[in-house]
Structures are given as structure tokens and as C-alpha cells.
Design a binder for these strands. Structure first.
Lengths: 221, 221
DNA sequence: CGGAAGGGGTGTAATTTTACACCTTCGGGA
DNA sequence: TCCCGAAGGTGTAAAATTACACCCCTTCCG
């Protein structure tokens, strides 16, 4: 959730001015409504998608119970860490909120990678950083029980928004998918947090009342 | 576990002949005994390690209950997908069996990335492929119960060794860490497989007797 | 305006897994 | 040669989580 200095934005800054101008001139923005697919698994990789606004969820499968890979926020290039493995996208990406995406032509982007070594090194560093944050995220979640995982997610959102009252870009089923527990687990744990006076929640609106205890649950779950 | 055409070996083939000769001339092989750390979390990134022989486990933490990231086999560059995120290694790597590693100087390697665009594109593709296989592995495991996860691991090893009798490079605690269940879960499930006549096992020696049923368990766990 | 669908929620029972205790065997080191 | 530690193993109980059933409310569409 920490978008500072590791975003796709930053690696694009490694382009030369004229390259950046050319890339942005050839790019176009697209808007997606909450719930729409931004990227569909199996489609061929013609474009890269830089998220400008909103929140997007990366999903592995296309089954009803799709597995959540990660949440993406403004500045990120969607699915960047696998974009060069095959010619087809191996995951889907769904807009969690209304979102705006900058569509960047893959071939133009690749041409810059081939001829601008500073840019390709910045891109390699960017991919490495995305991987590391992905591993951190999943491994932190993997070692927690359901209460800890939910608390951890709420703490991360509070940190990201920088305030204790915020609107989650996720419904309860989304939360369940992201942290890897059932919807009922999420609902029961959320009820427990409310009953204990740790949070207030009304649908997606969340207010954290006792940050210390939430952190304790997150750390020891 | 599929080492075909996605290994670090293959991306190194993208180097020009004289670059490859120079890289290999400056590299040296190191041997590690089973149980030794090949890479220790926190050490600075001066070298990359190409696994030539044996099996290595990538671990996230340095706690006693370290979390398993992935298993690595000959041809892989250890921890390649995060090697360019920071100046220190963010994970440890432990030799599961006696292993031989080619130690490649990071700065020489990076210099080739900067001046040989064909090589850097091959490297980007290699990292993407490593990421994708990592995601596939973890997401397949994540959706299985303990019986399914153990069966899946055994099936993958059978596929990798190409025969139904093989020696696991893992003891029961290692297996537990890799698939994310307790040691007793692994032991109980292994006993069940033996009692059902699906496998024979003596320590690390495993023989698969009923591949169809093992696959069924792997697929429906 | 009514019905359907989606989302939030609760309760109970079943299943899965861990925790804990303890055992046996084997290999290595003193 | 003996002892200790590591590894493989089993049993029982507790804890965690899911499965399932069902409810209520709100919003949207016909």
C-alpha cells in the first residue's frame, strides 16, 4: 500500500524527456466502473495499464472464486511483474472502485526498454520492488489467523489513507478474497471488532477507535 | 519445478559470446552442505548465485519458523526476482541437499544489463517467468487443504524427476514449511497415503503406487 | 410499485488443523 | 560404547474455520 517512490510513475521518469512526451502522447486514458474488468486473463498483451485513479484488484483465475493476488493503487502498472513472461495476460484485473487507467502501448514501451538502458534498469528495479512488496504482503497475511489478517488489512488502509476514518474500496466478499478467509469469517471478526469497541463500521465506511488494540490483533493474529 | 527454457541459464545465453566467457571466467563455484545457508538475509548484494547442482529453499524470515518462498533447482538464479530492489538481500536461501552454486559478480552482471539490450530484455522476460511460476505455485497451494497440498507436492516432484520412485530433498519439517501446514499434518497425511496404498515412503525415499488417486487428491484437496 | 439481487449479518454444526504430549529409531559425536 | 539430538510417527483435545441455513435491508430494474 506504500505508493511512495516505487510506483510505475517513478520508473517512467527514467525516460528521456522526448521519450516520455512521445509515450504520453501515444497513451490514452480509459475509465472503468467499479466491478468492470480492466484486464481479462487470456487477452494478448498489447498494452500496459498505469493506474491513475481508483483501486484495482489483481486476480489469478477466472473462476467465480477467483484468487486475489494483490490490490493496486494509483501509480502502479497493473500486473507489471508478469507482463513479460508470455504474450497473453495470465491474470485478470478488476476495478474495485471507479477507476482511470493510462493505456500504454506495449511495443513502444518495449522499444524504449531496448534502447534506453537507464530506463530498462529503472524498470528492472521497479519490478524487483513490486515483487518484494508482493512477497511481504502475502507472507505477512499467510502467517496470520483470520482476526489478525483482517486487523492487518485495516491497519494498512489506515496507514495508506493517513487517517482513522476512511472508506474501504472493498465489500466483505472482496475483503474475504484478499485475506484468504470466508466471508462469514470476515463478518464475524468485524462484528467482534465492533463489539470490542475497536472499530466502528457502516458498510465500507470504517473508523478506527482503538488503534493500539487493532495493531496488537494484527501483530499476534 | 519445470526447469525447461525459463532458467537463469537461458537468459545468460542471451549474452554475446565474449561477454559470457568473461562472466564465467570471473565467476567461481562454491559448494554448500545440506542445511547451510547459501544466502543470508541482510547481507549486501555483491553476487548473484546460479544454482548448478542440488536443491535450495528460499526463505523469507530468519525466525526459527521461517516461511518458505519457493524451492529452487539447477539452472535458477537464487532470489532473482527481488535482486534489484534494494542493496541487501531480503530473504535467506538454504541448501536442502549438498549443492553447488556459481557465484556471479553483481556489478559485472549489471554492467551487461546496461550495455546489452538483448540481454536485459531476456533478463526481464526471465524475471517475469519466475514471477509467474511463483504465483502459480503459491496460488495452487493456497487453494488446497493439507492432503491436497501434500499430494500436489509429491506429484510435482514425480513430474520433475520423471519417475515414480525418487528421493525428496525435504524432510517432514521442510515439507511442512513449504506447503504451509504443521509437521504433524504432513505426517498424518503421509500415513494416510501409505495406508491407502497410494504411496510407499521410507524417510525421504518415496515411491508413488497409484498416481491417479494421488492426482485426484491433489486436484480436489 | 414490487420483486429480485446483492450485501451485511448471525447462529449452529461439521470439518480441518493445530497444539500438545509422548514414543521409537537412527546416526553421530564424545 | 553410550548418550543425545534429530527425524518420523501417533493419539487426543482444543481451536480455528468453513459450510450451511437463514435473515434483513437496500437498491435497482422491469
Amino acid at each position: 500500500m506504500d505508493t511512495m517512490n516505487t510506483a510505475g510513475n517513478v520508473c517512467i521518469k527514467a525516460l528521456r524527456d522526448e521519450e516520455r512526451v512521445e509515450l504520453l502522447a501515444s497513451a490514452r486514458s480509459l475509465d472503468f466502473r467499479a466491478g468492470e474488468l480492466v484486464v481479462k486473463k487470456g487477452t494478448s498483451v498489447n498494452d500496459l495499464y498505469l493506474l491513475q485513479q481508483g483501486a484495482v484488484e489483481l486476480l489469478l483465475g477466472d473462476q467465480p472464486s477467483k484468487q486475489s493476488l494483490m490490490l493496486l493503487f494509483p501509480g502502479e502498472i497493473i500486473g507489471v511483474n508478469c507482463a513479460y513472461s508470455t504474450m497473453n495476460y495470465r491474470f485478470s484485473a478488476k476495478a474495485l472502485t471507479d477507476s482511470r487507467v493510462l493505456v500504454i502501448n506495449y511495443h513502444i514501451f518495449s522499444a524504449y526498454l531496448e534502447r534506453n538502458s537507464e530506463f530498462s534498469m529503472a524498470f528492472i528495479r521497479y519490478i524487483s520492488t513490486v515483487n518484494e512488496r508482493f512477497l511481504d504482503w502475502h507472507m505477512k497475511l499467510a502467517e496470520k489467523n483470520s482476526a489478525g489478517a483482517l486487523a492487518f488489512l485495516l491497519c494498512e488502509f489506515e496507514k495508506s489513507y493517513g487517517q482513522s476514518t476512511f472508506e474501504l474500496p472493498l465489500n466483505r466478499s472482496d475483503i474475504a478474497r484478499v485475506i484468504g478467509f470466508s466471508k462469514e469469517s470476515v463478518l464475524k471478526n468485524m462484528a467482534h471488532l465492533r463489539n470490542e469497541g475497536i472499530v466502528e463500521s457502516t458498510g465500507k465506511q470504517v473508523k478506527i477507535l482503538d488503534f493500539g488494540r487493532l495493531h496488537d490483533i494484527a501483530n499476534h493474529g
